[in-house]
Amino acid sequence: MFYAVLEGLRRFKIPHNFEFVSIISLYARWIREGRLNVSSAWNTEGLKFTVQDPCKLVRQGIGDEVAEDLRFVIRQVAGEENFIDVWPNKSNNYCCGGGGGALQSGFVQNRRACGKAKFQQLQATGADVVITPCHNCHTQVKDICDHYNGKWQTTHLWNWIVKAMI
């Protein structure tokens, strides 16, 4: 999990020789640099995409910059016109409701109540696909979709990049 490493290195002042990066930042950089060529031509049906901003990566991690990268990659992969943002978004986005150990803690009813706000904002987008770059978010977003009768498909980003690679 991004924050656990980023904040841990900072808080415990752990000496290290590497630079800590998110795969999302790299996807965006590689596409911008032309090292990863993608096209949305595959999306002939006009599948609509929206996104979840993981708290630990965006608000508590890198901030709006990585949220912009994330949207950039999705727009490249799915087509500019096929992306619709959620509100609120980026650093101000709602938590999925499953983070911070909630998925592991087992209070299912509370966790789903906590995910209600997330469900409502995702539902308001009318998107077919919700991209969840974090595994915790992925599990929770899928669960609230099933629980509250959403219709979207919850997926990782990498499947779509591969689909769009040219």
Binding site: R59, N92, Y94, C95, G100, G101, N110, R111
Partner: peptide, 16 residues
């Protein structure tokens, strides 16, 4: 309180 396990420590409160 069990609420501390419902709070997901998402930091949205601190954000604003």
């Amino acid at each position: 309180t069990r609420w501390i396990y419902t709070c997901t420590v998402c930091g949205r409160c601190k954000h604003a």
